[in-house]
């Protein structure tokens, strides 16, 4: 009786750990979580390769796979560069008011400018209304958002060595790509993976 209670206690203590190890760590999710393939993308707003991924590769992935329920895309924004910490804070703050896409797109599009000048807020503010600017500016200083920025980066450091890194997970198998592979070959491979 005592040993059964002890087992139950041990299991209860371990359960949160099991739950945490089965799905992707936080990040911004796009598409259906029930999609057969999970793609996790680890990127940094200030990384040139990530800009290439975001502006050329990602739109095709979203159009052909995410919106049709074949892929669940999770974006992890990491802070490895001088100004990317601030950029990530604004992006995650914007996510809280449903403006993540707009802010992320703007940050990548004007990456060269704000990376050189350090004026991240100017880029972010340009795509937000005055009311939204107020909210995002306040949320970017919120301890919860700052903690999320830190935890994403810390978690990313344990999983990847450079950005962008794409993890494709289908069942028990995981495939890792560093940088953006050629879309046509990746697409055909993804189609093949979907048939398995």
């Amino acid at each position: 009786m005592v040993s059964m209670k002890l087992c139950a206690l041990v299991l209860a203590a371990l359960l949160p750990g099991f739950a945490a190890s089965t799905g992707p760590a936080k990040g911004q999710g796009f598409g259906s979580p029930n999609a057969p393939i999970l793609i996790e993308v680890f990127s940094d707003f200030e990384c040139p390769g990530c800009k290439l991924f975001h502006t050329q590769f990602r739109p095709l992935l979203v159009r052909d796979y995410v919106t049709v329920g074949k892929v669940y895309l999770v974006a992890h924004d990491l802070s490895f560069h001088a100004h990317s910490n601030e950029a990530t804070a604004y992006a995650l703050a914007a996510a809280r008011i449903g403006k993540y896409d707009e802010v992320a797109d703007a940050l990548y599009e004007h990456q060269t400018e704000w990376s050189a000048s350090g004026k991240v807020w100017d880029t972010v503010a340009a795509v937000l209304s005055p009311a939204e600017q107020k909210k995002v500016s306040a949320l970017a200083k919120d301890p919860g958002v700052l903690a999320e920025v830190k935890s994403e980066t810390d978690d990313g450091k344990t999983k990847i060595q450079r950005t962008p890194t794409i993890l494709v997970i289908r069942g028990m198998k995981q495939y890792r790509f560093e940088g953006s592979p050629k879309w046509e070959i990746f697409r055909d491979w993804l189609n093949e993976l979907l048939t398995k």
Partner: peptide, 16 residues
């Protein structure tokens, strides 16, 4: 195709 992506990254063969 996985191996093809690795080869393609070298940039010595035409991708298409």
């Amino acid at each position: 195709r996985l191996f093809a992506m690795d080869i393609d990254a070298y940039g010595v063969l035409p991708s298409n």
